[in-house]
Design a protein around this nucleic acid. Structure first.
Ligand code: MN
Ligand code: MN
Ligand code: ZN
Ligand code: ZN
Lengths: 133, 133
DNA sequence: CTTGACTTGCGAAGAGTTATCATTTACTGT
DNA sequence: ACAGTAAATGATAACTCTTCGCAAGTCAAG
């Protein structure tokens, strides 16, 4: 499989990098459409899948919600807001989490994912406000 | 909100406990149907949601896949097979994982989820076999 | 050029889950 | 026992996110 860097592919990758965030396919679609109004959502999905297959981006499959994509390739973990579902990098080093996994039922370990959940500052304010009423 | 222990609710809870596993709504539906052929899938979904709201069971929302439900209430983590998506308990104590989360971008931490991914013994064999060909 | 592999845009289809609503069930108080 | 009422159910439609199928388009190699 050889991967051509088509305009669409390149644009999707560029916009994801530019955002520095954790975007859904749909969010990325909206951004890319500004430059390529005729691009299709399926193309965005397709290319995100391909780009993550060849490890040019990371696919985040977090907690039963929409997939998000991350152009940051270094191993790191995430925190996400249970209210608004915003996702941010967790700046504790990923490797500070020690994992003694001898007893893994005979599994061959391929990775580990740590998710911290919480309420982001923005949502804390929102909640405080609605409680005052 | 007061929660009645209806026959359906009780049966769903009983079957989940009996299985000792991590079942999807659909898998549980199939099991419960053996005893209550007329039960609706919506009822299973509804009750699993309710039971987890009142903390009688645990909802596992793992990695962009189907939700699974767990009757084990004690805090523990999971390992899951990236091939067949089987889920098992990770028998390292959940609390052996130390989490230094000062820098959490101002988030109020509500929880954390640790997922280890791997290939289960069954799937290892399957892969070994298919490579031999 | 022509070929052929890869890619695109579009719409349809799929999977999983939730919502709607008429009907049924089961408490509560009399 | 009975009526009144709140909650739960079953059937099905709707919904969200994602993938599929396919005709048409692109592009590099010969
Ligand atoms: Mn990240
Ligand atoms: Mn478990
Ligand atoms: Zn938030
Ligand atoms: Zn497996």
């Amino acid at each position: 499989m050889q991967l051509r860097m088509t305009n669409q592919r390149e644009m999707i990758l560029r916009e994801l990098k530019k955002s520095k965030g954790h975007l859904t396919a749909d969010e990325l679609y909206e951004r890319v459409k500004k430059f390529m109004p005729r691009i299709s959502l399926a193309t965005v999905y397709r290319n995100l899948e391909i780009l993550s297959d060849v490890n040019m981006i990371n696919k985040l499959e977090i907690s039963g919600r929409q997939k998000r994509f991350d152009s940051e390739l270094e191993d790191h973990d995430h925190i996400y807001c249970v209210e608004c579902h915003r996702i941010e990098n967790l700046d504790i080093g990923a490797n500070q989490v020690e994992l003694p996994v001898e007893d893994a039922h005979g599994y061959t370990i391929t990775g580990r994912r740590l998710e911290v959940t919480g309420v982001c500052p923005r949502c804390q304010k929102k909640i405080a406000k609605s409680k005052k009423k």
